[in-house]
């Protein structure tokens, strides 16, 4: 081969290190040490009680032996719970879709005036910050146990998601159509109705189907804090140590979620 090899290679040529991901050594080691300290601290303050874990194992054995086989005897209760969940999901989705349209318009930078834009964004952020279960617990306190609290919760939940996506869609609409209508002297509301709305409708339908699916899932959860639906049925079964019935409910929830996910995915593909 060429001459350079025979001339002996400097020692640096015998070593190679992968260039570090973070070039600055101070920052790199600072990060490593910081993460390590946090990890040790976070794990050390865990109330890690071996005694309780070993007790837990026997309790787990009891729960699982109580849960098998799943008990479908009270299927009427189960079906009622599900129908209620479905009702909650449908009504909350429709309310959410309807309410999210004006809020999305408020929160679209290219349509709304600055102060209105900020209000719209604030509503969306607020609706998205809270887990539906927290919202549900507040509504349960305000309007009592039952499906009303569930509907209100999931409506808010739907607004948080649908209005956000819709606002993003509005911000990227084809501006030419809007200008064409403006040029012909149409009023502001007219512009929204004829130039903006047709452009966002397909998206809204897709979002609606997605949201129906996701509300159905969520309705199973908010029921746990008393907002109606199958979640309440599950919580009651758990509270009465009816683990076999609880397992039956859980299995049905899983089944319904899988089916609903498949159906919603197929419909959205057909539309999209």
């Amino acid at each position: 081969m060429s001459g350079s090899a025979e001339r002996g290679v400097p020692s640096s040529r015998r070593h190679w290190r992968k260039p570090p991901f973070i070039a600055n050594p101070l920052l790199r080691w600072g990060l490593v040490v910081g993460v390590a300290i946090y990890a040790i601290w976070a794990i050390s303050i865990l109330p890690f009680d071996l005694d309780r874990i070993s007790q837990g194992m026997t309790r787990a054995a009891r729960i699982f032996s109580g849960a098998f086989p799943p008990n479908f005897d009270r299927y009427e209760l189960l079906i009622d719970g599900f129908l209620e969940s479905l009702q909650i999901a449908i009504l909350a989705t429709l309310l959410g879709l309807a309410l999210s349209v004006p809020i999305a318009f408020m929160a679209a930078r290219n349509i709304a005036a600055k102060p209105i834009y900020l209000i719209g964004r604030a509503i969306i952020i607020l609706a998205r910050s809270f887990h539906p279960v927290i919202v549900a617990i507040l509504f349960v306190k305000a309007v009592g146990f039952g499906p009303v609290a569930g509907i209100l919760t999931l409506t808010l939940y739907s607004i948080g998601f649908v209005a956000k996506m819709l606002a993003e869609r509005i911000e990227e609409i084809d501006w030419g159509q809007v200008e064409a209508l403006r040029a012909s002297g149409t009023r502001y509301i007219g512009v929204l109705q004829f130039a903006v709305l047709p452009q966002i409708m397909p998206r809204q339908i897709g979002l609606g189907i997605y949201q129906l699916d996701s509300n159905l899932r969520a309705s199973a959860v908010v029921g746990i804090v008393g907002a109606g639906g199958i979640g309440s049925t599950l919580m009651n079964a758990f509270g009465r140590y009816d683990y076999d019935f609880a397992l039956a409910i859980t299995l049905v929830i899983i089944g319904v979620i899988l089916v609903s996910e498949a159906v919603s995915g197929r419909i959205r593909r057909n539309i999209g």
């Binding site: 865990l46 899983i254 899988l258």
Partner: peptide, 28 residues
């Protein structure tokens, strides 16, 4: 994957609170 995904966190939490008792461990 499917069984983990289709059971909501809160339902998992219900189960683990029943097993390990209330506390951070069940949550984690």
């Amino acid at each position: 994957l499917v069984s983990s995904r289709s059971v909501n966190t809160l339902i998992w939490a219900l189960l683990f609170v029943a097993i390990f008792g209330p506390g951070v461990l069940a949550g984690i």
